[in-house]
Design a protein around this nucleic acid. Structure first.
Lengths: 107, 107
DNA sequence: ACGAGTTATAACATAAGTGTTATAGTTTCC
DNA sequence: GGAAACTATAACACTTATGTTATAACTCGT
């Protein structure tokens, strides 16, 4: 059942740019998933989070889909409500839950 | 010599959006300054860093000018050469020096 | 003074991310 | 079953960041 991994490894060998694009995509999706988890952890729906951040639900959905990296100001709006700290290095990107400062989310 | 601070506080009172924009600008400049420091700490010129990151010198200069927030992929390229870890929360944004993984910068 | 290296900036084209409305599919609850 | 809530997606307009070449100003060493 390693067909998928074999395919990926072959692409990486054939096409060096592939590895780079793959890493980028993994990180985009990684952040998206972490954002969604953090939201759920706070017991908010996308619509509620949208209201709290001054965004609209489709934007939240897009951010959670991993379509692209969020920009800093966007992330900060989200972190303002959800709490959390982003840690970015050359190879990794993680959203670490932190304590909430105020009762921004559901009590 | 508090004229500047007084002016800022007055603007904040008159114009709530001003505080937000100010905070954003401070953070943009903050990252820029931290990037420049990290580069200098590694003993690289902008042109050298540009070569190592696959960018061009004017882009490095722009990033160091604080004209805008860097995007994630851009930052990761830079961190790949300079080392360092970015920490982003709702209110703050810092670039923390870390150990270099390989002799990417000047020995 | 001059050349080489360094940095800053303008201007342009392009890519990427935001913001929005509309809508459809899905899930939950009564 | 139906309504309400939730989520996903398309499409469009707009904003923001990248990438680049050209060039000017600045700094340093000889």
């Amino acid at each position: 059942m390693n067909t998928h991994r074999q395919y990926i490894n072959e692409q990486i060998r054939k096409e060096p740019k592939f590895a780079e694009a793959l890493a980028k995509a993994e990180q985009e999706v990684g952040i998206a998933v972490e954002l969604a988890r953090l939201r759920e952890r706070r017991g908010l729906s996308q619509t509620e989070l949208a209201k709290l951040t001054g965004m609209k639900q489709p934007q939240i959905a897009r951010l959670e889909s991993g379509a692209h990296f969020p920009a800093f100001p966007t992330l900060q709006k989200l972190l303002g409500v959800l709490g959390g700290k982003l840690e970015l290095t050359a190879d990794a990107c993680h959203l670490v839950p932190t304590r909430l400062k105020v009762a921004s989310a559901r009590r």
